[in-house]
Write a protein that binds this DNA or RNA. Structure first.
Lengths: 206, 206
DNA sequence: ACATTTATGTTGTCAGTGTCAACATAAGAT
DNA sequence: ATCTTATGTTGACACTGACAACATAAATGT
């Protein structure tokens, strides 16, 4: 019988899966006190390890942020897929509108995290993966379907996806920083996103 | 005859207008090495003053960034006004398209600065001014004119301005971080901005 | 089973930074 | 001329990122 060193079965070494703990602690700090407070030493403190322990899992402070970044995009992708799954696949335009709402809601629910995700140029992942590109591709798929249905002009899919993404990202970004003016009405920025995307799609119709 | 202490006539005290020098040095650092490198001590070093001198002009590191921020919005406003001045006032839609292009060009020309301008919620200025709001109001004026001409629906001006601003900001922000996908064609993000705003306006037409 | 290698974690240290207090000096006001 | 205030300097402290040297447990080979 092995002593109950760690609960998780994958617990590989001395302490347990410290890497996971670090990422979760970093997320907590990010949500609590913003990016400037997610510091390696504070994370180590909260995780109960020495101040240099995180360096065994992240070469750098930036590397940690980059990892958080990619996790953020994975979470965003899951949120979008879960939301679109509730809408008929036969209605790609409706799906795009839901994507717009969900996207903005995600940003509003995770402000610091979302800010971090778009704080600068993407750092190439060590394994060559590109999560943001996957999310983009997912939306591009919806655009292509909308084109096939005749709801959008049969033009450059990437171009149109860029427009849609930019619009939604712009609303999310401005809302996050309280830069949307005159929010007297329903105020929910997600409805603004829906309306903006609806207008854009109308303007991009054949 | 007073000794040639300083060149500028407003030079008020010992060193000259250190406040201005600090802001300019900060801008240099921002453009050269990004926000994380604009540090009070490095600024002081470059300005040839002691490491604590900047505290006589900015209470805080954040206060300095906030000042840079407001200066950025002033520069943006000037850029937009200069660009629109070249287009007939009788063509508000054309002016909006020029605003879109100029806006994105401004961001592309000052990446770190633009990032800083939208890095977080705005800090209230000590004098109560609100430069970003002035820029917004300027664009809103164009929207109102476009409505009066029948190019846009006669709906909530602020709402439409939010949409336009968000779209343009989204494109600028994504372009800055190299997050626009498939830039094979003309590639200039400013043309993307023009097309996106054109489509949006079309979708918002009566 | 044992020794060896590798993966993790710790301690100690250094430079750079933000911030403050105490002090120094020049400009303006009385 | 003296006093007050604005500005600049010195010195200090805590915190952070980063590295090197060391310690130990897990994995691996024989």
């Amino acid at each position: 019988m092995s002593r109950p060193r760690a609960v998780k079965k994958e617990a590989p070494y001395h302490h347990g899966d410290l890497r996971r703990v670090i990422l979760e602690t970093a997320l907590e700090l990010l949500a609590e006190k913003g990016e400037s407070s997610v510091t390696l030493r504070e994370i180590a403190r909260r995780a109960g390890v020495s101040h240099a322990a995180p360096y065994r899992h992240f070469s750098d402070h930036r590397a940690l942020l980059a990892a958080l970044n990619d996790e953020g995009f994975m979470a965003l992708r899951h949120a979008l897929e879960a939301a679109t799954a509730k809408v008929s696949a036969a209605a790609p335009v409706s799906r795009l509108l839901v994507v717009a709402e969900t996207y903005v809601d995600f940003a509003a629910a995770n402000p610091a995290r979302y800010r971090l995700m778009f704080a600068g140029p993407r750092h190439a992942a060590p394994d060559g993966s590109n999560v943001p590109a996957e999310v983009f591709a997912y939306v591009a798929g919806l655009v292509a379907e909308a084109q096939a249905q005749g709801a959008l002009r049969q033009e450059n899919v990437k171009l149109m996806t860029n427009m849609i993404w930019a619009t939604v990202h712009g609303i999310a970004s401005l809302a996050l920083n309280q830069r949307l003016v005159g929010t007297e009405t329903g105020d929910n920025s997600s409805t603004l996103a829906r309306e903006a995307i609806a207008a854009l799609i109308k303007g991009l119709a054949p």
